[in-house]
Amino acid sequence: MDVLMKLGDIDKRVLYVLLVLVLLIPMVRPIGIRISISHWTTKAYEQLSRLEPGDTVICDFGYNVDGAPDVEPIAKAIFRDLFDRNIKIITVSLNAQGPMIAEKLLLPYEESGKVYGTDFCNLGFMAGGETALAAYARDLKRTFPRDWRGNTTSTLPILQGITGAPDTKAWIFFTDSSAEAWVRQVGDLDVPMIGAVITVAAPQAEPFVHSGQLSGLLTGLRSAAEYEIVTNRPGGAVAAMDAQSLGHILITIFIVFGNISYFVKRSKELAGREGVQ
């Protein structure tokens, strides 16, 4: 009985150590748990698979490095898919750290032969929050007269014939907060929009897919892993999924421990009270 009661009082540092172990071990020795593809990822993939080589998409970076572990794997998976299919990417940033994050992700493709200004460009960050977003969604060159690297945007070949979002084939945003800003400011423009949001923001973003304001939704590491699988390019996100599964199992076990202890304590208290009466 005492052992069962103590299950609810395990030092949280024990839980933390166990959590570190169950997250680290599968990273070193993957188990290979099968990953099923969710409806949302399929929908987003179907939308992006309609793009033809030479089409241009806008990728909006709206996350901080803090949210990167959950959102960045989606950006990596999408970049790999789009660049492999020779789709052109224009990056813009609602967030001050966005241009630096985008540069880091674009660098490997530049090194492997993609040409800046023709295959991709990084327009940088515009201060002003949603007002800035509304402005650059409607007129990229006017809002960003110069790109992040200091080039005059009107001279970039990738931007020839493109004024705003409706002149591109898709708008993909990556964010570690809510999707609402994009739905409000880009939603009424004639461009399919795909949201890549941090996992905890998923319930808030899902109504926008139902309403048709978003054409697809990718949420956190799980969606990144699913996207890697549907595009036949398994990478870091797939490897991290085993760790996530084991982590969830461990937390569930501890929740069960806590409840066993709670019910044992309660039954003992009740028995004690009946004894007194």
Binding site: S178, V200, A201, A202, P203, Q204
Partner: peptide, 11 residues
């Protein structure tokens, strides 16, 4: 004692 309040549905 923790007292919280937010409009952020995901928190």
């Amino acid at each position: 004692i923790s007292i919280s309040g937010t409009e952020s549905t995901y928190q």
